[in-house]
Design a protein around this nucleic acid. Sequence first.
RNA 1: GGUCCCGUGGUGUAGCCUGGCCAAACACGCGGCCCUGUCAAGGCCGAGAACGCCGGUUCGAAUCCGGUCGGGACCGCCA
Length: 585
Amino acid sequence: MSGFTAPHCGSLRAADVGREVELYGWVARRRDHGGLIFIDLRDRWGAVQVVFNPAQAQEAHATASELRSEYVVRVRGMIGRRPQGSENPRMATGEIEVTASELEVISVAKTPPFQIEDEVDADEATRLKYRYLDLRRPRMQRMLEMRHRVVNAMHRYMDANEFVEVETPMLLKGTPEGSRDFIVPSRLHPGNFFALPQSPQQLKQLLMVAGVGRYYQIARCLRDEDLRADRVVEITQLDVEMSFCTEEDVFALIEGLWVQVWNEVLGTQITTPLPRLDVQQSLLRYGTDKPDLRYELDIADVSDALRETNATIFRAALAEGGVVRCLAVPGGRDMSRRELDELALIAKGAGAKGLAWLPGPLDKHMAEGELAAIRSAARAGEDDLVLLVADRRRKAETVMGLLRREVARRRKLIREGEWKFTWIYPMYLFEEDDQGKLTYGHHPFTSPWPQDMHLIDTQPYAVRARAYDCVVNGLEIAGGSIRIHDRALQERVFEILGMSRERIHEQFGHLLDAFEYGVPPHGGIASGIDRLMMAMTGTDNIRDVVPFPKTQSHQDLMLGAPSPADPELLKELHIQVVPPDKPAR
RNA sequence: GGUCCCGUGGUGUAGCCUGGCCAAACACGCGGCCCUGUCAAGGCCGAGAACGCCGGUUCGAAUCCGGUCGGGACCGCCA
């Protein structure tokens, strides 16, 4: 057996006619004519038709009649041009076929739980349980290869720009900041735990102090948070940090990376520099900080026009400090009550109290001037319907963002095939959490804009951050910042965030200490490769681009993880399990 | 922590709203037989689900109600 040197089933072409070959692969399909038997033999490179002719190879033909789907076989045969008129233009190998002289069944196969074809879409739980079969589908094979090509292009691009890949530890110190840590018990230090990395953030900053200058890593990061369609527990990111740089350097570097990756992997030219969008503008106009700009729908604020309105729901929301936002649905006057109710359900599902529309039941409570002002702000034409939401600003933005996306889908406004990149920049240093407490917008190491420093105590929310996200087609594919490199400023930011001296010292003492030994100004970015792959393959399900994904409830259906630990092991680790009151999910 | 959707043979769906005609239909797949140029091969025949699980309502439940388990979408959360 020498499958390594054997040609690939899917790579054979007309130029190979006349070659005697030995092929290895899976039986994708068998067509038994009683006399002639055809099989499509599949490997990662594609499939080729093999013909068994009883007149030419009786034994092979007899064996071929026993073949079933997904059997693994070795075939020896002669590559020939297909007879006139029997070429298959839909197959890359369709001009040729292999006339078998020898057939060996290497491995038989049970009937798989779903067909190994791109078109057959089994239930996702079944696909995940039999992921090794799911991955056998041509589309998934292409995904794996594309993922490889993306990462490979990244390595070459970063190397060409003199970045050094440095590995950072998996067993780190936990922090209460950011997302929930996955923790690992220390056997030698009972009661103490390592944390798995949420990102190598502090280590890459320390590498800058170490003088590495330009660092990158294809890093695995783990965050124990609830999942979404674009979120998994374990992500892979291109992690980058460089010294003596500004935002412009990071933008130029990453734009160059996109140019190379899109060109190499998709054959698409990207025009740079990429546009930039202030995060507040994005939240106002698109209701999200990761807008999909492949369609034009713009949200507008009509709070001021409605302060005196008789429509109670608007006046009440405004009186409580909320806002009223609106969105024109092109040609939306033809929407049925049922369709509007569905939109209202989406709004309510996101926490809105309700959804109003115009023309609609609220018209009679509003003045002519108010109606005109709304239509004008929404830039609504004759046939357009206007959706209105009144709520706290953050909630209204979220709800309008969801509605904007839903309207675009329903009205088919999304221009598929376009790549709408944008930088979200600038952002703001601090945000208000739901308790009204001040918290960081990006992370606590992000540098404020120097010219906004005078506001840091009096109007902290107005201080811009040297932070940026890169968004394409509604997916955040990278995010980073220029960091604080001054110990005093870093301590001050920690204090503004409400951290005690003791806690600062305990959590971040090593970083602050490092800043006393000569620290270069530095900044960086991280790009989530899973989301990048989503964008490039056009899927809205991140599990489609992850080889072995977990479910929304963090389970690996194939491995059956997580599972109870061996009691002996737990004892060694000094861990006692307290069963939950309710059975665990 | 919360809201919503889904769960019917191996797979995908129909039926469920308006309980009985449903021990359940269709397609693919699967098994057998026939067939020497097909490629979603074709023809004929056949097997296969008491409708996730538990409980309730009812003379009667796949269909209604409650709970539970599993999958998914979303809000919160995700520095």
